[in-house]
């Protein structure tokens, strides 16, 4: 029941225009490698996009609170994109299936979640949620939202800077709410984010496309 309530809250919040961490689908034939490190987990994702509608990849995760890892095949689907002259919005389904390893247990694992984002060249907002089921190892729900503003607007090839605020909710963690101010630097096919959570943990994310 608790999980259903959380999922319901997540879907409700989802109606508000908010984002994904970064676009999980690339251009046709594009590869992406991304690495995230925050208070909750360390992850590494390598994916390939056969079309601009979906991507397939391998994901490794280490979840700090539960002290377990997940190795999974991940598929990201672009369910809907809204292209406007000044802005773009997206709705994604991100799902994975693999194996979770805990201290004493190993179990099949699966996860799925919705992600949405809206951005123009000045403002950014996003939201995503995820439910993970890993048998005896763990099961949990997480969700996060971001807002951002670009202090200046650069053209293609310039260094773009974004000031962002992320709020994440992990109902089953000791620290249920985490707030992270962060700065995003974005140039060409490279993206770097750095921040510090209200619990004193470092956020460091990077993306490279090729």
């Amino acid at each position: 029941m608790k999980r259903l309530i959380c999922l319901g809250i997540g879907l409700l919040v989802y109606a508000i225009p908010v984002e994904t961490y970064a676009r999980p689908v690339s251009y046709p034939g594009g590869w992406t490698v991304s690495q995230t490190n925050n208070g909750e987990a360390n992850t590494l994702l390598l994916h390939y996009s056969p079309t601009a509608r979906y991507s397939l990849g391998y994901k490794f995760e280490y979840w700090r609170d539960g002290d377990f890892t997940v190795n999974a095949l991940q598929m990201n689907n672009l369910l809907k994109r809204w292209n406007n002259e000044e802005s773009q919005a997206n709705l994604y389904l991100k799902s994975g299936i693999g194996i979770a390893h805990g201290d004493h247990e190993t179990s099949p694992a699966a996860y799925t979640g919705l992600a949405t984002d809206w951005e123009d060249r000045r403002f950014f907002a996003s939201y995503e949620n995820r439910y993970t089921e890993a048998g005896d190892v763990d099961d949990f729900f997480t969700q996060s939202a971001r807002v951002g503003v670009a202090p200046y607007i650069g053209n293609y090839g310039d260094i773009h800077t974004w000031l962002m605020l992320e709020v994440s909710h992990a109902p089953e963690n000791d620290e249920k709410i985490t707030i992270t101010p962060l700065v995003r630097f974005f140039k060409g096919v490279q993206l770097l984010e750095a921040g510090m959570t209200n619990h004193g943990e470092v956020l460091l994310n990077a993306i490279y496309r090729f």
Binding site: R23, S26, Y27, P28, G29, G30, A52, R81, W82, N83, N84, E85, E86, S87, Q88, E119, D120, R121, Y156, G157, H160, F186, K187, G188, V189, R209
Partner: peptide, 21 residues
Amino acid sequence: VGVNGMVCDFCARALEKVFAK
């Protein structure tokens, strides 16, 4: 070509790659 939805460098790079082929 006027393009809708082109808001960031990832978009620009995507179009470059696709047209370059």
